[in-house]
């Protein structure tokens, strides 16, 4: 089973990289781009076949390592 994890900065946490991307897009002539927020996408192959157990495993991975919950949120999608 594949787990796809999106890690994003929480609302209210400044994202200087997102801001830099926003400015670079404007400099390239892409108008109408509002706020840009940058995050991480992590894809995992999981041996566990039971979706509920797999999700619980990945949740724990997110809390312990993949995300820093002081500043980041995470979202998990399971496939297959």
């Amino acid at each position: 089973m594949k787990a796809k994890v999106h890690v994003t900065l929480k609302q209210g946490v400044l994202d200087p990289q997102g801001k830099a991307v926003q400015h670079a897009l404007a400099a390239l002539g892409f108008t109408g781009v509002g706020d840009v927020r940058q995050g991480k996408f992590i894809e995992l192959d999981i041996a566990e076949a039971d979706p509920a157990k797999a999700k619980a495993q990945v949740e724990e991975m997110c809390r312990k390592l993949l995300a820093n919950t002081v500043i980041e949120n995470y979202a998990i999608d399971l496939e297959g």
Binding site: V13, L14, P16, Q17, A20, N68, V70, I71
Partner: peptide, 16 residues
């Protein structure tokens, strides 16, 4: 901070 021995987190420098 990552180990939980101190609160908070060190983020990317504001000026990058």
């Amino acid at each position: 901070t990552e180990a939980g021995l101190l609160p908070g987190v060190l983020m990317r420098n504001q000026g990058l």
